[in-house]
Design a protein around this nucleic acid. Sequence first.
DNA 1: TGTATGACCCTGA
DNA 2: CTCAGGGCCATAC
Length: 114
Amino acid sequence: MDERANAMARVWQVVRAIPPGATASYGEVARRAGLPRRARWVAVALKAAPAAQRVPWHRVIGANGRIAFPAGSRLHREQARRLRAEGRTVAQGRVVAAARGARPGDLDEWLWKR
DNA sequence: TGTATGACCCTGA
DNA sequence: CTCAGGGCCATAC
């Protein structure tokens, strides 16, 4: 099996490891998957993720705490809906940090609800 | 082969 | 806070 499929599987695994209600940034996921500086590629991997893999893609957001989809798009609304369903607050396309002083995609945020 | 386009990120102004 | 600039890299055409 080639490295590409391998890396993609690692990304899905990392995303599946994000607990409900928590969020991580693309860059964070990339690092945890052993693919530093490849945040962009994480997006490609998520887009290619089969529904059967049950990858919680909605828990992955930009490093700035923003939903990456264009405001108003169908997926943007879908992601906001799912996050709110897990107890998160989304305002102006931005996910409000769960912990004071932390950013939504930080490692601190990741550990927050473990 | 070359260019354009993103579900990105970081730094500096 | 916003904006630009540079880096990154798979995909589409």
